[in-house]
């Protein structure tokens, strides 16, 4: 039986259809999860997709964090459930304190959409095992508030523990500290990523198909478990 991966839809989620497609193309069954439901429907992993949950009012991800589905999700993630937060999903993970730090306004003050080169710094997480350490990939990036910030001690810790999952190459598109594009929790099961791997899963519509690796990674882990 195919692994079942949940994709949460909050009001204002936009890339939920894309995340579901990526899950399907990777060979798993996407399961739609609704923000008002407490159940995770027994899924094997969860993707928090990009978008503007609750209009990003107050602060990106700040309201989504209090959605009923997040109560169950936070518990499950602490118990080892693999969770990938993309863009707004990354912001929600930070607001939920599953990941440290915060995402703030791009240093350019503009929304930016571009094909972004990244280096996979840690290929041992639940979501990056399909890559080689140091592998360079290109996936779309699109955000208005994608500048990753944390205090120096936290940044040092993330670096020391290998929890910087991916870093921007060529151009730092949003002013992220230490060119950080994505980080993980200590267990390597919860990953937050500002770029959008779900938009790089088909040669026709993406700049590459490099994004698929994030979704096949988690499948390998689930099948192996």
């Amino acid at each position: 039986m195919a692994a079942r991966i949940g994709v949460v839809t909050f009001p204002g989620s936009l890339d939920d259809v894309d995340a579901a497609r990526a899950v399907r193309l990777a060979g798993a069954e996407p399961v739609a999860l609704w923000h008002k439901d407490r159940t995770l429907q027994g899924v094997d992993a969860v993707v928090l997709p990009g978008g503007f949950s609750y209009g990003d009012y107050l602060r990106c991800g700040a309201i989504a964090r209090f959605a009923p589905v997040m109560e169950s999700l936070v518990d499950a993630a602490r118990g080892g459930l693999p969770v990938l937060g993309i863009c707004n999903g990354f912001q929600i993970l930070c607001e939920s304190h599953l990941l440290p730090g915060a995402l703030t306004r791009n240093d350019s003050l503009h929304f930016v959409c571009r094909d972004q080169r990244l280096r996979i710094e840690n290929a041992a997480t639940a979501w990056t095992s399909a890559f080689q350490p140091g592998q360079e990939i290109v996936v779309p990036l699109k955000n208005g508030e994608g500048s990753y910030v944390a205090d120096e001690r936290t940044l040092d810790e993330l670096e020391a523990e290998g929890r910087v999952v991916a870093r921007y190459l060529d151009v730092n598109p949003n002013g992220s500290r230490r060119d950080i594009a994505g980080i993980s929790n200590a267990a390597g099961t919860v990953v937050g990523l500002m770029p959008h791997p779900e938009h790089a899963v088909e040669p026709l519509t993406g700049p590459t198909t490099d994004g698929l690796g994030f979704f096949t990674s988690v499948l390998t882990r689930l099948v192996g478990a």
Partner: peptide, 14 residues
């Protein structure tokens, strides 16, 4: 101009 617009969302932009 165009880099301030999302051209990828919905995954059907050819």
């Amino acid at each position: 101009v165009t880099s301030q617009y999302d051209r990828y969302v919905r995954g059907n932009t050819v």
